[in-house]
């Protein structure tokens, strides 16, 4: 795959109240962003267990993005603050294990920020393209566990 174009895989966890709505708005506004983004809706950014992020990286994603409401705006009062703490921990752990912690991104995108949603998706994809594929997914020892 020497000269082959690198198309990253980015799993996006979007909270139901802000970032999902922003994604809807970006779509409705026909704002384009790369198909690298593979979205899933969650109720709140705080519901995203660090395991989800790691799992995505393990299973082949080159990056993950977590979108929540702006600080102070959380539908669930303080969920986004909890998410912020969790992401910080994931990043620290990744870094200390020698992995690229910038492959986890936390962004505050409110329901009215369709353009921002598209911009973040574009910029982050470009960024990950520059970084190249993640080496995390090639770690056999961290192979995915069975889930029932």
């Amino acid at each position: 795959m020497t000269e082959k174009k690198f198309d990253p895989v980015i799993v996006g966890f979007f909270c139901n109240w802000c970032t999902s709505a922003a994604a809807d708005l970006a779509g409705t506004s026909r704002l384009h962003y790369p198909a690298s983004i593979r979205p899933i809706r969650v109720m709140c950014s705080s519901t995203v267990d660090p395991v989800y992020l790691v799992r995505a990286l393990q299973e082949g994603a080159d990056a993950t993005i977590l979108g929540g409401c702006h600080p102070g705006d959380c539908h669930y009062i303080t969920g986004n603050y909890k998410a912020r703490r969790r992401v910080a921990i994931v990043k620290t752990v990744l870094k200390s294990l020698g992995f690229d912690e910038t492959r986890v991104l936390l962004e505050w995108i409110s329901g009215s920020e369709g353009p921002k949603f598209a911009r973040v998706m574009n910029e982050y994809t470009d960024y990950i393209k520059k970084r190249g594929p993640s080496d995390f997914k090639y770690l056999d020892s961290l192979g995915g566990e069975k889930v029932d």
């Binding site: 899933i40 299973e59 889930v147």
Partner: peptide
């Protein structure tokens, strides 16, 4: 997200459900 034993889960947003979805996406 904070439960160390996965004992507490939101109905229909269980950890297993999300992880399976993530596996497909990733």
């Amino acid at each position: 997200a904070n439960c160390p034993t996965t004992a507490i889960q939101v109905v229909n947003f269980k950890k297993g459900q999300i992880i399976r979805a993530v596996d497909v996406l990733a």
